[in-house]
């Protein structure tokens, strides 16, 4: 875990409403694992007391990038930062995805900008699998060329039917799970909105497949100190407790998660 003053190398549109911010952050780039995140202090956004968390998208050499969409005041302010400016970055934070189990077939499920950590996961895997990309519309379908270049099978679903199957990403996922003939046991890695993660997790548990879900949360400190971003989790003995998404996650085994926070 480091704090780096990272200069912005590129800040560019990345399809639809998405942007990629590329930073020079040698210490973080050297140690980051797929599924870990950065906690950014957004420049010239002085009214904010909190940093903003973003999954690491690309990491090559001394460079790292994030993929984001404007969803609130923080990401809106972020769109205004320019190449050459410096961003205060904390990271890498969180646990990240585990290595895929030997002999399993990696199955990735991405919702919207949830594709970001899955890109890095696929990039670092020495085998190809299948990725299901879900999005609202064709503009929100990202990284298809990247996964194609890695030799991955790609299944797309858009809610408006403008690209791939019409509907939610669970449509093509269900069809594939029902019809697959491969001998390997699927192991699922997913990142996206809670509704998608819950649906994917429930299917995995029912089918007896391992699933790792990366959660997107508003965060406070990012290091497990403030207990602001907690998620209800199950212990092996069935009792429930609050896990810290920033420190104990953001990736959890689907079978650990209690979806109704009661």
């Amino acid at each position: 875990m480091e704090i780096e003053q990272a200069s912005i190398l590129r800040h560019q549109p990345c399809g639809g409403a998405y942007r990629e911010l590329v930073l020079n952050a040698p210490a973080i780039a050297a140690s980051v694992r797929p599924g870990q995140f950065l906690h950014l202090r957004i420049p010239r956004f002085e009214q904010a007391v909190l940093r903003r968390p973003f999954s690491v998208f690309r990491a090559e050499g001394e460079h790292i990038s994030i993929l984001y969409k404007t969803v609130g005041a923080g990401t809106m302010a972020l769109t205004g930062v320019r190449e050459g400016e410096v961003v205060n970055v904390m990271g890498p934070l969180g646990n990240g995805f585990p290595s895929s189990s030997p002999g399993s077939l990696p199955v990735l499920v991405a919702g919207g900008y949830g594709v970001a950590p899955l890109y890095l996961l696929a990039r670092r895997m020495d085998m190809a699998g299948i990725i299901f990309i879900g999005a609202a519309t064709s503009d929100d379908v990202l990284c298809v060329e990247d996964f194609a270049a890695f030799g991955w099978q790609i299944e797309i679903a858009t809610e408006d039917g403008s690209r791939g199957a019409r509907g939610l990403v669970t449509g093509p996922l269900d069809a594939w799970l029902a019809s697959r003939r491969c001998p390997e046991q699927p192991e699922i890695f997913a990142c996206g909105p809670d509704g998608m993660l819950r649906a994917v997790g429930e299917r995995a548990i029912k089918a007896g497949h391992r699933a790792w879900l990366s959660m997107d949360r508003h965060m406070g400190c990012g290091v497990g100190a403030c207990l602001g971003c907690v998620q209800r989790l199950k212990k092996a003995d069935g009792s429930a407790y609050w896990g810290r998404v920033c420190r104990d996650g953001p990736v959890f085994d689907a079978s650990q998660i209690v979806w109704n926070n009661g």
Partner: peptide, 8 residues
């Protein structure tokens, strides 16, 4: 246990 979420 503390409170439910959202907490901040």
């Amino acid at each position: 246990e503390g409170n439910s979420t959202p907490r901040i």
